[in-house]
């Protein structure tokens, strides 16, 4: 291996791994068992896993058709729409949270009407957490699925059409199986991003234990008072997310 590649590669690896090692090194191992059984941790972890999974489900239902629209159809301004879809990727999540408040808040663009008509109010609810996470994480799925669609040969769909399949049938029976690995990879990426979401969540959904306090929020607030508690929470999140990602990778997302 040429040193011009090897040295920066190793430096990069150390840079990424060392902070994780720092967490392990500073962790309060002696009091870990009793800290892990504190009721707050379990509630935050349960909420984090639930909301990240729901946000991924929402992203799949809305994001895969959106990716199909961007990859398989021609309409004026398609490039512009594609750029718009990726905006949440570059937007600071806190700004995303404020933007969500301005639309879905009580005095927001749609929020007032939603509240008056259906009695639905997203801020400070678990549904609000899911909305914030989906807003931030869905672009990852859309980009990933769109890439898979562009890589997949459109002639299979055309062949299906010549055999009498409708566009919907062709999508369901031909396209979707073709791009399944891309969808799975996008979903995993989306889930991981949703699990770590902090800024949009605390801004839009607030912070209340058991209802909107996910693991990253619990870590942040624990940090205000008790560094050890924050480290324990971080370790739990780290172990659970690595475990789930590793399990999924073996099953669905072969490299």
């Amino acid at each position: 291996m040429p040193p011009a590649l090897a040295i920066p590669a190793i430096a990069g690896l150390v840079f990424l791994v060392l902070p994780l090692f720092g967490l392990l090194w500073r962790a309060p191992w002696s009091t870990l068992p009793e800290r892990l059984t504190e009721p707050g941790i379990l509630a935050a972890l349960r909420l984090s896993l639930l909301t990240a999974t729901l946000a991924t489900a929402v992203s799949l239902v809305l994001g895969v058709p959106l990716a199909w629209l961007l990859a398989r159809t021609e309409f004026p301004g398609r490039r512009f729409v594609r750029a718009l879809v990726t905006v949440p990727l570059v937007l600071p999540p806190v700004v995303g949270g404020v933007a969500l408040l301005l639309v879905f808040g009580r005095r927001g663009l749609l929020g007032g009407w939603l509240d008056a008509t259906f009695g639905v109010s997203l801020p400070f609810t678990t549904a609000g957490v899911v909305a914030a996470e989906a807003f931030v994480a869905m672009p990852f799925l859309v980009i990933s699925v769109e890439g898979a669609l562009r890589g997949a040969d459109a002639r299979y769909e055309e062949a299906a059409s010549t055999l009498g399949a409708t566009r919907w049938t062709a999508f369901r029976r031909v396209t979707l199986p073709l791009i399944a690995p891309g969808v799975a990879a996008g979903a995993v990426l989306c889930w991981a991003r949703a699990l770590g979401e902090f800024g949009a969540t605390i801004t839009f959904a607030g912070n209340f234990p058991g209802r909107t306090q996910t693991m990253p929020l619990a870590v942040y607030l624990a940090l205000e008072q008790d560094l050890d508690a924050a480290i324990v929470l971080s370790l739990v999140l780290l172990v659970v997310s690595i475990g789930i990602l590793a399990a999924l990778r073996d099953k669905w997302v072969a490299p």
Partner: peptide, 20 residues
């Protein structure tokens, strides 16, 4: 409360925005 904010300014901004 509906939310426990991370600092006093964040709690105030929720009132300003009309969310609480």
């Amino acid at each position: 409360p509906v939310t426990l904010e991370q600092d006093v300014k964040a709690a105030l901004s929720k009132v300003k925005l009309g969310e609480v």
